[in-house]
């Protein structure tokens, strides 16, 4: 048997669609909009493997906590991110891990 076709390409959104999440109604991640306004690095925007942090049209940080993979990288990147564990049973639920 020969399989020659290259690995399928998937965008990040498509990959996140494969991950199982149990979504809570409230975010477990919070930023301080005042601090964000003064921040030049905006490290959260590119360091998050799931693109949880994005700039909205008003240049504020919008948080798509629903897709958080719960690695904690943003918390180490930015000292102002308030990171709480999601409610028990909620959040990412890996099938492979």
């Amino acid at each position: 048997m020969t399989i020659l076709q290259p690995l399928e390409k998937k965008t990040l959104a498509e990959k996140l669609y494969l991950v199982r999440f149990k979504t809570d109604t409230e975010s477990h991640l919070k930023v301080d909009p005042e601090k964000c306004k003064l921040c030049r690095e905006r490290g959260c925007i590119y360091i998050c493997p799931a693109d949880v942090y994005k700039l909205d049209e008003k240049e504020n940080i919008a948080i798509s906590y629903e897709a958080c993979l719960e690695c904690g990288t943003c918390r180490i990147t930015c000292e102002f991110i308030d990171w709480k564990n999601p409610r028990g049973g909620f959040g990412v639920c890996y099938r492979y891990g």
Binding site: I3, L4, Q5, P6, L7, E8, K10, L12, K15, L16, L18, V19, P49, A50, L69, E70, C71, G72, T73, I76, Y94, R95, Y96, G97
Partner: peptide, 23 residues
């Protein structure tokens, strides 16, 4: 990494099942 010429040949025919992240 996955599309590097030396890596992509190891992944031919594969199907992505899950993305994960960890520190």
């Amino acid at each position: 990494f996955k599309s590097h010429p030396m890596i992509k040949k190891f992944l031919r025919g594969g199907k992505i099942e899950e993305l994960s992240a960890k520190m």
